[in-house]
Nucleic acid binder design. Sequence first.
DNA 1: CACTATTCTGAATCATCAG
DNA 2: TCTGATGATTCAGAATAGT
Lengths: 376, 376
Amino acid sequence: MAAVLPLIDLQKQARPHAWMNSIIKGDCVAALEALPDKSVDAIFADPPYNLQLGGTLHRPDQSLVDAVDDDWDQFASFQVYDAFTRAWLLACRRVLKPNGTIWVIGSYHNIFRVGAIMQDLNFWLLNDIVWRKTNPMPNFKGRRFQNAHETMIWASRDAKAKGYTFNYEALKASNDDVQMRSDWLFPICSGGERLKGDDGKKVHPTQKPEALLARIIMSCTKPGDVVLDPFFGSGTTGAVAKRLGRNFVGIEREQDYIDAASARIASVEPLGKTELTVMTGKRAEPRVAFNSLVESGLVKPGQILTDARRRHSAIIRADGTLTSNGDAGSIHRLGAKVQGFDACNGWTFWHYEEAGVLKPIDDLRTIIRNGLPKAD
Amino acid sequence: MAAVLPLIDLQKQARPHAWMNSIIKGDCVAALEALPDKSVDAIFADPPYNLQLGGTLHRPDQSLVDAVDDDWDQFASFQVYDAFTRAWLLACRRVLKPNGTIWVIGSYHNIFRVGAIMQDLNFWLLNDIVWRKTNPMPNFKGRRFQNAHETMIWASRDAKAKGYTFNYEALKASNDDVQMRSDWLFPICSGGERLKGDDGKKVHPTQKPEALLARIIMSCTKPGDVVLDPFFGSGTTGAVAKRLGRNFVGIEREQDYIDAASARIASVEPLGKTELTVMTGKRAEPRVAFNSLVESGLVKPGQILTDARRRHSAIIRADGTLTSNGDAGSIHRLGAKVQGFDACNGWTFWHYEEAGVLKPIDDLRTIIRNGLPKAD
DNA sequence: CACTATTCTGAATCATCAG
DNA sequence: TCTGATGATTCAGAATAGT
């Protein structure tokens, strides 16, 4: 296994690892041994969906399971699929950074087993995301509902991992300024995007749309991050990662897929820095202490602050704290106290008066952040 | 356990069993012993979700979120939850007719375990159905996607059961003559439908909307069939079953819920057959986010948008936001910003050029909408 | 009464940093 | 690893209050 096919170097620096931006040929679990612990920022996995349906069943080593009896076979099928799932998920978990996250896509045939095993392995589920297809295949026999969606599970490495990347502001801004929901609408991969061989036949049976991968990669990674796809197939993950300025690692067993994916990725043109910049919120801004407003003279000791409706008021003290009716504390503590709350964002709660108009002191923080005008 | 509370007899014939159209008080598994083998046509189960909540959660306005922390939703571990799930599913399977089907609803906290166990117990999964909520609770901390759906699993008793009821034509006719998809859109239960006590507080924390149950019961049962709900709660299943001319059996442990459900069901008037077909409302025009245009390739990152008179311009970024002269934001925010306004409809303000002609990006939204299939 | 503004709420695994 | 301080964060719809 593991013939390493180096492809490109997105970052135009010395490639830190031989496996970076390459497709590793081999079985998923074995090939992952080429990667160090905690070396990838995100994983997108599109594992085999259904090993019990089509009559044939393959073990992790691809040997055919010889079905003997219906009942026994069904039990054995799930067992084998579970063992396979457990193995690749464990291998993925080892190479995932502590603050990395993993996506797994599946259908009702396999996603419940996958999800339960992920929980058993201490992955911490963050969301299940529904990919609603605009153009799903009809149900031909009319004996079920049209299977019009697939399910993705998004999870962090464990419950304690709070620092995972989630570009909340960017997703919200791109979604008409309301937060992104767990149900996404995309067409299936078809038309020019669908890879086809010389015979005109599709290269891969389950090629995922680039739009889907784009939203995934934009949501949970930063430019320069490493995205692993342990079931690389036609290389959608790699193509989108490259376009979005991310690094990728693919694992794939079949040479035909590797060839198609390599050519596909080679033709991808990465986007520029301007296009890749994403919206960030206040979280990403540097912290400013209220005291620096006092020190810079934007507010003065003795000055009175009120809430937006003048129901509460407080006096600024020289040390950058507030006092009101015998209570005192930071802008946050005192804001909480006067309202009887546990917590309060003093920056948006307290207002100062300018030309008869009340403005939040957050406006003054913005002045500090943007750089004070030069004064003597 | 098992004090039988007979309620009504929908079919106006001699009640064939004491438990028909009644609520059995007791633990789910034990109470099911009151029912013979293969005695119900359909099951709707809304088991505890096993939410694992950390502390308290406040909205941005500091109000407290009334979380589901009831005793019945507390389980010591996944192992304990799995054992519980296995037990009630097995008991349900015994009383289900060979051609009966079962629905189980859950969230990502529990549905994967439930689904895997159903497969292990030889239930045969027919569909997973997504209930998309029109008005889900937001994600208040901005650390995840808004959890905007719940998942239902629809399964037959075993793989060989081919004769289950599925009212394909009725569903299709009610869905603008296209087959019913696996993603359904309904509001959460609120307003007058939501049961409230004398204190004005909700009777049950997780009351399901009647519209959801109506579609379920209409899809897989016939008038006169028996629908079992092993976690009866506020009795939505019973109320809808009665309205739709089906029989029901409910199992519930808590007397408060039983009392509320009994009164609720007593006040239900069964509908005539004619009225049963007008249950699906007309679907609102789907909202399309600007990012869908980027993701679908109708516009590209790096592309320049202008206003109709080319006085302002902006560059599209990969995350679906715009940037212009150092400012950035959604199509609406940046449109407002460059004009010095508070608000702006970005869809009509921003234009793209095609064959030398400026067209509003709203035209592209129309393309997306026209590509949408009929749903809900 | 009509209309507007405000408040309330829903199955939620919901923060981060310095010390 | 724990504690305390800082300060970031919400959408749709219904109910209620105010004009």
